[in-house]
């Protein structure tokens, strides 16, 4: 005979685990996406700054714009966990 209490406990634990996994994927995958996007922008930014120092501020700003993707991932992760 199936113990209903134990099954419920397993289901709840599994749900929590899935949430944690989803939160991890949300942050991890967006992090990889931001990294890929920043690779191109960062290379161009370093190149432009090497030729013209005045470009540094703008180059830095453009380089960190893909970080917003990670923030979206983080928000999704927090919503999942809490």
């Amino acid at each position: 005979m199936v113990d209903v209490g134990t099954t419920l406990e397993i289901a709840q634990a599994s749900q929590l685990g899935m949430k944690a996994l989803g939160a991890g994927l949300a942050v991890g995958l967006t992090g990889i996406g931001a990294g890929v996007a920043e690779m191109g922008i960062g290379s161009a930014a370093v190149g432009a700054t090497a030729e013209n120092r005045d470009m540094f501020g703008l180059a830095l700003l453009l380089t960190v714009i893909p970080e917003t993707i990670v923030i979206f991932g983080l928000v999704v992760a927090l919503l999942l966990l809490f």
Partner: peptide
């Protein structure tokens, strides 16, 4: 990799 191409071409 592509990063070095982007760097050199931007310069």
């Amino acid at each position: 990799g592509p990063a070095t191409y982007i760097y050199a071409c931007t310069r």
